[in-house]
């Protein structure tokens, strides 16, 4: 649910990074935070456990510049990936404008990826969204891992609607901005249609 403020000429969009535990959602956001122009980024809020596992969410506001005279601001959120935090994941999806699904390329995590997409579909539905129509990007993360599954295999297992699919190594920044951009494009195009 985009928030368009005509008084301050601002438009705010909420993008949620989703995916199984330890797939690199927080790493994506951290990389964006480190690279972003200090004037454009807000504070990175991380609600994490003592061992740096996301407990509730990470949050990063980003000022992107202007489109048609409106200041565009993205609010990036991650969900906690661990299975037992499902109640929190559901809450964070509330009012989102787009999803970035971060898949872990390691073969051993393929089942966790599939389960997480199914979980996403359920939680989106409970928030009144349809996984087949909401702006959605698939990121194949950790492509540098020796045990990474081939892209074609991951595509067959995880890609279900011809969504943009981007290969990434988030801890080195590879593919991180491309992924965000693909999501931004879909969300802004959606605004154009609505």
């Amino acid at each position: 649910m985009t928030f368009i403020n005509y008084a301050s000429r601002e438009i705010n969009c909420k993008i949620v990074y989703y995916g199984p535990g330890l797939c690199g959602k927080t790493t994506n956001i951290q990389w964006i935070y480190e690279q972003a122009n200090p004037e454009k980024k807000g504070k990175l809020v991380s609600l994490a456990t003592e061992t740096d596992r996301t407990l509730f969410f990470d949050f990063l506001p980003l000022d992107m510049g202007t489109v048609k005279g409106f200041k565009v601001r993205f609010h990036l959120y991650t969900v906690p990936g661990q299975v037992f935090y499902d109640a929190s994941r559901k809450l964070i999806l509330r009012g989102c404008d787009g999803i970035i699904f971060v898949a872990d390329s390691q073969r051993a995590r393929m089942e966790a990826n599939i389960e997480s997409i199914a979980n996403l579909a359920t939680n989106l539905k409970e928030n009144g969204f349809d996984i087949r129509s909401i702006p959605y990007v698939l990121q194949l993360n950790k492509r540098d891992m020796p045990s990474a599954a081939p892209v074609t295999e991951m595509e067959r297992l995880l890609r279900f609607r011809g969504e943009p699919m981007i290969e990434a190594v988030a801890n080195q920044g590879t593919g991180v901005i491309e992924t965000l951009k693909a999501a931004a494009r879909q969300i802004l195009m959606e605004l154009q249609r609505s």
Binding site: K181, R185, L188
Partner: peptide, 15 residues
């Protein structure tokens, strides 16, 4: 809507 004429170039410019 002010976004009815948004283009690919507008989006590229944001990045």
């Amino acid at each position: 809507s002010p976004f009815s004429e948004i283009t690919d170039e507008d989006i590229d410019r944001l990045f």
